[in-house]
Amino acid sequence: MPSPRLCAAACLALAACTPSLDWREVRPAGGGVLALFPCRPSHDERTVPLAGAPATVALQSCQAAGATFALSFTDVQDPARVAATIDALRTAAGGNLGGAPVVGAAAAVAGMTPNPLAQRVGVDGRFPDGTAVREELLFFVKGTVVYQATVLGARVDASAVDTFFDGLKLGG
């Protein structure tokens, strides 16, 4: 018969292996994108002013492991508005948290349209209550559709961010 210590160690080992993130493939309606979310996302859509014009933005988001995972997209319908839209989204991300966006690397999403503003960006800031927060963003484009993938939380797990961003594929 196993010792109580051995049983306790086995239970702890099994608990440590239990995933807190339940990854699943999601194809947002009308998005032309396949995403890998760590939880079941909810869907929202609204029209907002963006880069000087109204834009209908679709959003898929969920919370897992102390972070919010989100994917939003909008078709700006005019190639001349793509850069201004990405810039407005990046500026808003920094402004909402009182932090400065810092470019980490160029975006690399399967099927994306090359764009110099398609980038991975990080923002360190604060929630309105003063709590420190980290936001990781990925901006990318397909034609005139602008996408923003976001992971936001007081503590952001780098491997979860990489899995979320690397799981994005266009043409789905």
Results as ranks from 00 to 15, higher is better:
residue 54 P to V: 11
residue 55 A to R: 14
residue 55 A to D: 05
residue 55 A to Y: 00
residue 57 V to F: 01
residue 59 L to V: 15
residue 61 S to M: 07
residue 62 C to Q: 08
residue 63 Q to S: 12
residue 63 Q to M: 07
residue 63 Q to F: 03
residue 65 A to H: 09
residue 67 A to M: 15
residue 68 T to F: 00
residue 70 A to M: 02
residue 71 L to C: 04
residue 73 F to D: 00
residue 74 T to L: 13
residue 75 D to R: 15
residue 76 V to P: 13
residue 76 V to R: 10
residue 76 V to M: 13
residue 77 Q to L: 13
residue 77 Q to V: 14
residue 79 P to Q: 07
residue 80 A to G: 11
residue 81 R to L: 13
residue 81 R to P: 04
residue 84 A to M: 09
residue 88 A to M: 03
residue 92 A to E: 13
residue 92 A to V: 03
residue 95 G to A: 14
residue 95 G to H: 03
residue 95 G to Y: 01
residue 96 N to D: 12
residue 96 N to E: 09
residue 99 G to Y: 02
residue 101 P to H: 05
residue 102 V to D: 07
residue 102 V to G: 00
residue 105 A to T: 07
residue 111 G to L: 07
residue 115 N to H: 15
residue 118 A to E: 11
residue 119 Q to Y: 01
residue 120 R to A: 12
residue 121 V to Q: 06
residue 121 V to D: 05
residue 123 V to L: 01
residue 127 F to I: 06
residue 131 T to Q: 13
residue 131 T to C: 01
residue 132 A to N: 12
residue 133 V to L: 00
residue 134 R to M: 08
residue 135 E to N: 11
residue 136 E to F: 02
residue 136 E to T: 01
residue 137 L to S: 11
residue 138 L to N: 02
residue 138 L to P: 02
residue 142 K to L: 12
residue 144 T to N: 14
residue 145 V to Q: 12
residue 146 V to I: 14
residue 150 T to H: 00
residue 150 T to C: 07
residue 151 V to G: 08
residue 153 G to L: 08
residue 153 G to N: 09
